[in-house]
Every structure is written in C-alpha cells, then in structure tokens.
Design a binder for these strands. Structure first.
Lengths: 209, 209
DNA sequence: CGCAAAAAGTGGTCTGACCACGATGCCTTT
DNA sequence: AAAGGCATCGTGGTCAGACCACTTTTTGCG
C-alpha cells in the first residue's frame, strides 16, 4: 500500500501525491495549489523534481501556471495539448481508424441513454436549439453528450472528440434535416430509428457499428 | 509560422522541437533520441528545461527513459493520456456512480464490433476457452475486449474495468450457461439476442442501456 | 584472445542562484 | 483622509554545477 517504490521516479510520486492532495482537499478547477517551493519542502524533494511533475501535468492540461501568481487547477475540458498529441501520433493509421469508430460508438451510447432516461422537456429544448440556430456537427453532439446524464460517458466523448478533431478535417456539410430527424426519433424513444438515422444520414456509413 | 514565441515557455519550445526532430529524422518507436545533455547544448537551453520537456512527454507515454541507456521513442499505441485523465477525474463521486453503467455500455459496444467483424475461428477459440475452463466474469469480458479489433475501445474498457473493480464488490456467482449463450449469439451475429442475454442473463438488469 | 577493471556516458536528483512578473503594503503627495 | 507611486515579497522560469546510480564501452592485464 505504501508508495515510494525505490525504483520509481520522484516526479511520478509527486504526480500521484498531487492527485491525492487534490482529492483530499477537494480542490476544484480554479483553485490554487501550493507553490513549487512549498511543495518541495513539504514532500522533501528538490524543487526541480516538483517542477518536472508540474510541467508534465501542465502539458496534459490539468493545471495552469501563471508567473508571479501561482499554479492553478484547470478545467479538464479544455486541454489544448490534444492537438499536440494528435500531431505526435497522426502517423498511426491504426489509431486513427479506432478513433472515429470509437467516437461513433460512444455517440450511439449517448443516444441510447438519452432514449432511456432523458426528459421530454430537455428534448424539446434541444429540438428548439437545433431548429433555430446554425450549428455544426461537433456542437450538436456535444449537446447530445451533455444531455446524456452519464457524466463519465460525456467526458469520454469529450476526450475522444478532441483527439478526433485534431486528427481529422472538420465534418462535411451538415444536412440539418438529419439532426432534426434524430431528435424526433429520440422523442419517440425509438432506438432502431435513431440508430439508422445516425449511421446512414449523419455518419454516412453503409454498415452499422 | 516560426516558433520560439518570446513569451512561451522553453520546455514547450523543446517539446515542439523534439516533435520536429522526430519527424524530420524519421525516428520510429524504439529509436533513441539524443541525450539530455546533448539536447541542452544543441538547443542552447539548460538541461533542466530539457528534462521538463522530456518528463512531460514521458508522462504522456510518448517516450521512455532508461537510466544509463538513454531516452527512446515509445510505441504510440501505449500513450497514457486516457489513463492519466481517468485517474484524475474518476475521483469525482458523481462520476463513480456512472462507472458501472459505462462499463456495461462499453462491453456492449465490444459485443457489437465483434458481431460485425470478428472471425468465426476466433469465436470458436473463445467458445472452447469458455467451455473448458473455470473463469470469472472479468476475464471473460477481458477476452471480449481483446477480441474486439478496436484497440482504443479495448483500452477504455481496461481502464473502466480497473476502476470499477476497485469500487465495487466482485461479481456474484457465474452462471456459465449465460456466457456460452452469449458466444452462441455472437456466432449467429444476432445482436438483439446477444444484447438480451447480456443485460438479462449476465448483468441481471431489468432495463436495457 | 578473453575477461575483468576502469572510464565514459546517461538519466535522476538536489542545491543555489538569478530573472521576470504579479500582488501587497507602506509611504509620499495631494 | 484619500489617491497614487514605489519598494518588497512571493511566485514561476531558467540556468549551472554537483553528485549518485546505472549501463555501455573501452582499456589493459593475464
């Protein structure tokens, strides 16, 4: 149960301890974490090791540092580094195909949970939003992910969407009608219809899955 | 177009330059990159800044360092972003409650892709494995996740499973028959049947989703 | 020629020193 | 007393140098 594997690297320990600290203190996005020097002292490590951990977390987009002010917990939703990562493994076509397929699977999962649990009122709001505004595919499915009451699924979608966005060109033209029809199917709680619309009208795939 | 923003942080510049270097030199997973000291000299920066960049990339799983040997490019398949983000936001209690539901959704997604793409031979192997050996629910669905050819989905399942395992008591007694029936449904490429077996016989849920 | 010891190279860590920047508070000026 | 300006302090950003632990390479002895 005790950490500090003798062979492990200090900065990884610090990442772990920061995670526990954030959890224990109930820190939220925007909150400040102790200064580098204070962390070094409290954890009995060098400041450079603390910095290695913080820089890694910063690159991940989990924290944000402001010179002269301090280090703050960031809202997880906006990691920009995904573009960077995308650039790093853009070369791997295997992952690419998995990315889109997984994104579609998750989106269908969101649709399923919406059909099972979403209130009629929320669907009406969504319908109104879709009917009136110019919107793109991403913002539509962001709404879908949010409407699904499963926060974990929503977060998974966000991450995968960020990756996909970084790796693929934005979607083609948007046939507004397809999205409206999809919402209609949601309101009818008709999963098969929703699935068909999603795969054929929106994603333009011949096969399902 | 040229980088080296005066205001940006050195370690970010280094990350960018490393990326360019890897691309320009056509370095592949397993290849070695220059030593920290050499990078520091070539880029005219301090070694600690180089280390901050390397540690960040290491935490991302893009590189691997071996003491005494050097730093190597890692197979991008193994990037750890998902794990890390998972470790950070799965602590949210709200999300905890979504764990099981999401696990089930992902498992059904695996089942769908298996139905769509898995070879008969692989299913026979799975059937044989299930028929002869004592196995538990976790190892069965691990096979399912592996059989699904989507590596990203498999990875997501592993993460969620490990967290679910930590949060919930292990599954109840295992009705071997259900799993066999499920495999049978897979072989018949009958999604509805598989789904029904999964939710009712295996997960014992009244409702779907 | 073979093998063990020495040397060189590499990542891991710590310390101390500056710099640049933001926030704070004291002090002068009005 | 209030308003503005300046010194100070705390913060992250960076660098240099020093060890340590470990691996690889070279050296040199038998």
């Amino acid at each position: 149960m005790i950490h500090s594997n003798p062979s492990s690297k200090i900065y990884l320990d610090i990442v772990e301890k920061l995670r526990n600290m954030i959890e224990a203190d109930g820190l939220l996005p925007g909150d400040r974490i102790p200064s580098e020097r204070e962390l070094a002292e409290r954890l009995n490590v060098g400041r450079s090791s603390v910095r290695e951990a913080l820089r890694a977390l910063e690159l991940l987009g989990l924290i944000e540092t402001r010179r002269g002010e301090g280090t703050f917990i960031k809202d997880f939703q906006e990691h920009r580094l995904v573009e960077l990562l995308g650039a790093f493994f853009l070369q791997n076509p295997q992952i690419q195909s998995n990315l889109l397929e997984t994104k579609y699977l998750i989106e269908m999962d969101c649709i399923r949970t919406i059909i099972a649990y979403c209130s009629e009122a929320d669907l009406d709001i969504l319908l109104k939003w879709a009917a009136q505004s110019g919107f793109d595919d991403e913002s539509f499915f962001q709404k879908i992910a949010e409407l699904n009451r499963n926060k974990l699924l929503e977060r998974i979608w966000r991450i995968i969407n960020s990756y996909a966005k970084a790796s693929y060109a934005p979607a083609q033209a948007i046939p507004l009608e397809g999205y409206i029809n999809l919402i209609q199917a949601l309101k009818e709680r008709n999963e098969n219809k929703a699935r068909s619309i999603y795969y054929h009208s929106i994603r333009k795939l011949s096969t399902d899955t």
